[in-house]
Design a protein around this nucleic acid. Structure first.
Length: 1001
RNA sequence: GCCCAGAUGGCGGAACUGGUAGACGCGUCAGACUCAAAAUCUGGUAUUCGCAAGGAUGUGCAGGUUCGAUUCCUGUUCUGGGCACCA
């Protein structure tokens, strides 16, 4: 009986489906364990071998936990809203729901072949109204909440209104300290209003103020606006300042946008990192993104003639900057303000007006990324000066794109001797540099030290910078021109898209006031549209529907991360029509115990879903405030591309131009030719001799490589690096059907050629356009799901990125066949033996200590490796076990049965089959994980490496409980050691028990 | 530009807490079986010098700490991911 994986896998997949073995109950006496994969977007390209990597890892872990006695939730679903489906709809007129549905079907068919233990009965799709009803509902909860800074948690907006009515906002200042009511003569001072003020406001003003507090709020923000396409573009769709499609110019445009007030959660998102098991790198990325810093806001007055001017609020103009280094205030040589800064129009001098206008126009065409990434320095002087409050020095005010409006106050004080970017700016524009740190500043580059003693710094002279920070802030506060300030780099999250394929906002606009729809009107269904093109003025497609706009419904839709911010909760209770998830159920499942996904979500999805969880927790809907207890990041699987080389030579024959462009040259021949240009002649002469070409005069270019085009070839037509020429000829509808091939030995290809065509290789991103994608189903078809699963794991650590190479899969397949042969012989059939044989079994006595040692060593290793997600070494441990048991000719049921159980998470189909072959009636999926019997693993001695001066020279077998003295005697008696000692006595003998011995001479 | 990660034989990788570098697999070479091939099995395989015994070198690069460094520290190069509307 041979290992017929196709039959086995089909049989058990059907059996498991029929018996609903993966259905999970919300109520179990077993401890719970929640394993989750990051929500996949069902792309039209389907799965390639990179996608299932994380799913296989989570599947192994879920199955392992199940064997360990846990009630394991392991669901799967689809993040089904998104830009690609909408783009497809624009181009092909197919409704995104239709194409998405088709994509999901393909996706599912591919997943099913791999044998995952997902509980598909819990599948969710974000685009399903039953699902997005609750996304809209949660949005309304956020809309109807504010962040209570005193209690440090979200609270109902009704409570805030009550507070305003009773005491104004004295204890709850407006988060945006610059806020002023629009279109009203009422001026808010220091972000404050009284209860009398509040009660005197009309509804519109009250709502405008409340909007400043809501966790989901409406404001204005800049988008990538493409006039030619009449639409807003995603960053992805903008390349070098022009649209990806068509290459039209893209500029910044202010549009009404929804936001989530995630900044209020900055501190808790930071603190929460300490409670969760994310990698240090991931935590660092998140905390850098949040970017908490301590410093000061300083108001600089402007030169007298400007200070006389007044701002809109009738107050004297000042320039407010944020700095983390107030200690350097005497080193400020210029100010830099963002090109969007509101002060620009009031302070720019007449002479500079034109230059400033030109500069701002230039900046409008630049993305935030470009603005920070560019190495070239740009900027423009406004003509205005600020006054240093301590020494009255006049400081020129510049505009530069590297200062972003959204961070701090959108203005910085530049200290070129201490900040590299300021330094380069000063050098570039010839601004004189003040040195306040003496010898620490060389004049060659800035020095950001905090440990220098200050010079040229007025009352700070002689002070260490680190200590001066606090003194300056105190002084500023005394003078009333500055204050201590904590700042965050993180900005509020833009939460709307001018698109069709997303959740509609349950919001009605009336007289400029946003009114939430009542809960009983949810879900607000996404309406059908005739075209997916944008509405007027950059609005989304919904603005084109009269029935929609008549109802004054919001025309924006929610972004991709809306549905994915809470999906892990819906899986717990997917059919609940009354709640997004019942509290009882979410209390049972609690946090996701293990979350597996890529690092690309490091700061987007992971921060947003953490914020949603915290808000839902604050409002009492769930009992935990961090969604993911442990996160494992899977690496990317890169593509390994293959290339062929097409000869491209022009010539003349009988006065006619001749082009050779249908001859492919094997890689090493190509390399030889570009090294030695005579070979090109030889090749063409050869082509002539073989009758392929007549005598022609060649026109050879100076750079021989230009005579070749390197073309991607589909990796599925290449075995390792050998091209399947016949398959290649049929490729792309026979585009190369008449091609000729010069093979590795220099011969021309014919039907019985012995030599091969060799391709070159390169590791690139796996993508269709590079023809390096490999479909997992092809491999499952050829080798089986068990082989495929184990091979994906065998490739390397899950966390690491690595190139895909199909070639190696055979080794894993051989392993499974070898495992099979422990149970079955091709001729003899079943060969396992049992100490208490059933009538059908052979007697074979009890397992020997050596056999049991292999078994328990393996159980221990697999358990350790699985627990630490080291699946690649786990697979090798299985290989080693099977190799050793084969060597021992061990076919004992007692040993093999336990081996099958620990193999189940990795290769469930073959394990289940053999388990039943051995006579078991129940499924192996619920077998009990075997316990390690340490008594078979104890060793009494060890082969110690003996090093002389750190270099291993000999090996000695020494009992484990040997003392230092005993070891020294044994070592010194050794011949090799004696030889190296050359009669000298050693300085020291280092003996680390169970590790090594080092003799120092 | 900024933040994060990675770099080990021909290839994927192993070495978990500073202690025998290269487990396991691929590839490759030699052999067995076979008319032959496939499959399977056995053995070799970091580089280099040497008939061998044995020696030297070796974990991106340059330094450092240590009896001992792939592992820790400093600097540096290259590659990958993210940078707020791809998901």
């Amino acid at each position: 009986m041979e290992y017929n994986f196709r039959k086995i896998e089909e049989r058990w997949q059907n059996e498991w489906k029929k018996n609903e073995v993966y259905k999970v109950n919300n109520d179990s006496p077993k401890p719970k364990y929640y394993v989750l994969d990051m929500f996949p977007y069902p792309s039209g390209a389907g799965l390639h071998v990179g996608h299932p990597l994380g799913y296989i890892a989570s599947d192994i872990f879920a199955r392992y936990k199940r064997l360990k006695g846990f009630n394991v939730l392991h669901p799967m679903g689809y993040d089904a809203f998104g830009l690609p489906a909408e783009q497809y709809a624009i181009e092909h007129g197919i409704h995104p729901a239709v194409s998405t549905d088709q994509n999901i079907k393909n996706f599912r068919a591919q997943l099913d072949k791999i044998g995952f233990c997902f509980d598909w009965s819990r599948e969710v799709r974000t685009s399903d109204p039953h699902y997005y009803k609750w996304t809209q509902w949660i949005f309304l909860q956020l809309f109807n909440s504010y962040y209570n800074r005193i209690e440090k948690k979200a609270d109902r907006i009704e409570n805030l209104i009550k507070i305003f009515t009773q005491e104004g906002n004295v204890n709850h200042p407006i988060p945006n300290s610059q806020f002023q009511i629009t279109g009203s003569s009422f001026t808010i001072h220091d972000s404050q209003f009284t209860s009398a003020d509040w009660n005197s406001f009309n509804e519109k003003i009250q709502q405008e103020i409340l909007m400043e507090y809501r966790l989901a709020y409406c404001g204005y923000g800049e988008v990538n606006w493409c006039e030619a396409l009449g639409t807003v573009l995603a960053n992805d769709e903008v390349i070098n300042g022009v649209s990806e499609r068509g290459g039209y110019p893209v500029v910044k445009k202010k549009l009404r946008q929804w936001y989530l007030r995630i900044t209020e959660y900055a501190d808790r998102l930071l603190e929460g990192l300490e409670k969760i098991e994310f990698s240090e790198a991931m935590k660092e990325m998140q905390s850098n993104w949040i970017g908490k810093s301590f410093g000061a806001e300083i108001d600089f007055s402007l030169t007298p003639n400007l200070s006389l001017r007044r701002g809109d609020g009738g107050e004297a103009l000042t320039l407010k900057v944020y700095t983390t280094r107030p200690d350097t205030i005497f080193g400020v040589d210029f100010m830099v303000i963002a090109p969007e800064h509101e002060l620009i129009s009031s302070i720019t001098t007449e002479e500079q007006q034109q230059a400033v206008d030109d500069y701002i126009t230039y900046v409008k065409s630049r993305s935030d990324r470009d603005r920070q990434a560019e190495k070239k320095i740009t900027g423009c002087f406004t003509g205005a000066y600020a006054i240093n409050p301590f020494d009255q020095r006049e400081i020129p005010i510049w505009i530069s794109e590297y200062v972003l409006a959204g961070y701090g106050t959108g203005a910085i004080m530049a200290v070129p001797c201490g900040d590299e970017r300021d330094f380069k700016f000063a050098k570039h524009f010839n601004i004189p540099i003040t040195n306040i740190i003496g010898k620490h500043y060389t004049g060659e580059e800035a020095n950001p030290t905090k440990d220098a003693v200050l010079e040229n710094s007025g009352f700070l002279n002689g002070m260490v910078m680190r200590d001066a920070i606090d003194i300056v802030i105190t002084k500023l506060e005394e003078l009333g021109i500055g204050k201590r300030k904590v700042n965050y780099k993180m900005r509020d999250a833009a939460f709307s898209r001018q698109r069709y394929w997303g959740e509609p906002f349950p919001i009605v606009w009336d007289n400029g006031i946003a009114y939430p729809l009542p809960e009983n009107e949810l879900p607000l269904l996404l309406p059908e549209v005739k075209t997916y093109s944008p509405g007027p003025e950059g609005e989304g497609p919904l603005a084109n529907i009269p029935a929609w706009t008549e109802k004054k419904l919001e025309t924006n839709t929610m972004p991709g991360y809306a549905g994915s911010s809470w999906y892990f909760l819906r899986y717990m209770d997917p059919f609940n029509e009354k709640e997004f998830c019942s509290r009882k159920v979410s209390d049972y499942w609690g946090q996701v115990d293990l979350y597996i996904g890529g690092t690309e979500h490091a700061v987007g999805h992971l921060l947003y879903s953490r914020m949603w969880t915290k808000a839902l927790h604050d409002l009492g809907f769930i009992g935990h405030d961090e969604p993911y207890k442990k996160l494992v990041n899977q690496g990317m699987i890169q593509g390994s591309s293959r290339f062929v080389y097409r000869l491209n030579v022009n010539g003349k024959y009988l006065g006619e131009d001749i082009v050779i462009n249908n001859v492919f040259v094997s890689y090493n021949i190509y390399l030889n030719v570009i090294r030695d240009n005579n070979l090109l002649q030889h090749i063409t002469v050869y082509l002539i001799q073989t009758g392929y070409l007549s005598n022609i005069t060649l026109l050879i270019k100076e750079n021989i490589a230009e005579h070749f085009s390197q073309l991607h070839v589909d990796v599925n037509m290449v075995d390792g690096i050998e091209l399947d020429i016949e398959a290649f000829k049929k490729w792309r509808n026979g585009e190369y059907a008449n091609a000729e091939f010069i093979l590795e030995d220099g011969s021309l290809y014919h039907s019985s050629s012995i030599s091969n065509y060799i391709c070159s290789t390169e590791v690139e991103k796996m993508s269709k356009s590079k023809f390096n994608t490999v479909n997992p189903n092809d491999l499952v078809e050829k080798y089986g799901a068990d082989t495929f699963r184990m091979y994906e794991m065998f490739l390397g650590p899950v966390e690491q990125s690595k190139p895909w190479d199909t070639k190696g899969i055979e080794g894993v397949h051989r392993f499974l066949k070898k495992l099979w042969r422990l149970f079955f012989d091709e001729i003899k059939g079943p060969i396992w033996t049992s100490s208490a044989p059933s009538p059908l079994e052979r007697a074979g006595g009890e397992a020997t200590d050596a056999e049991l040692k292999v078994l328990y060593k393996t159980i221990k290793k697999i358990e350790e490796d699985t627990e630490r997600f080291s699946f690649n070494t786990g697979v090798s441990a299985f290989m080693i076990a099977v190799n050793e048991l084969s060597d021992l000719k061990c076919h004992k049921k007692e040993v093999l049965e336990k081996l099958l159980i620990i193999l189940t998470p990795y290769a469930p189909h073959v394990a289940e089959e053999l388990w039943h072959q051995l006579g078991n009636e129940t499924t192996i999926l619920d077998a009990a994980y075997p316990k390690v019997e340490e008594k078979y693993l104890v060793e009494s001695s060890k082969n110690y490496p003996v090093a002389i001066n750190g270099k291993t020279r000999a090996e000695l077998n020494i009992v484990l409980d040997a003392t230092q003295q005993q070891v020294e005697e044994i070592v010194l008696a050794n011949e090799t050691v004696q030889k190296w000692l050359e009669g000298k006595s050693p300085k020291k003998i280092i003996y680390v028990k169970n590790k090594m011995i080092n003799v120092v001479i």
